[in-house]
């Protein structure tokens, strides 16, 4: 059943998801929304990793590289979300805003 869907479909879906996430990360004002865009991009990458593992690996059962990498990406995404949101909350406490355009103390 699995190989009846061409690999290209998954790749296009992942590319679209990545682009949407990138748009969110570039265009949103709210820092939390920017983080959401980054999570979307990470998900798109994961779809690619798993699809290449499933279709490209000669022995997808013994060789689990794609799934292992996707698991590491998920772990890193969790770490990123924890630290990123902690930063957002700390900034909100001291500056009373989460608008990335107003957080410009280091700009000149």
């Amino acid at each position: 059943m699995i190989l009846q869907i061409p690999l290209v479909y998954y790749l296009i879906l992942a590319a679209a998801l990545f682009c949407i996430g990138l748009f969110g990360a570039l265009s949103r004002r709210n820092a939390i929304a920017v983080l959401m865009g980054i999570e979307l991009m990470l998900n798109a990458v994961n779809i690619n990793l798993v699809a290449f593992w499933r279709y490209g690996s000669p022995d997808p059962i013994a060789d689990q590289a794609g799934v292992v990498f996707a698991l590491f990406v998920i772990t890193l995404a969790a770490a990123e979300a924890a630290v990123g949101l902690a930063l957002v909350i700390a900034i909100y406490r001291s500056r009373d805003t989460v608008n990335v355009e107003e957080i410009d103390l280091l700009k000149w």
């Binding site: 699995i2 279709y55 490209g56 997808p60 059962i61 689990q64």
Partner: peptide, 17 residues
Amino acid sequence: PWVHSGTAVYTDTTPYL
């Protein structure tokens, strides 16, 4: 030109993982 070399054998892959 993507290569489809994956085999469609279904087993429980979690122990291998």
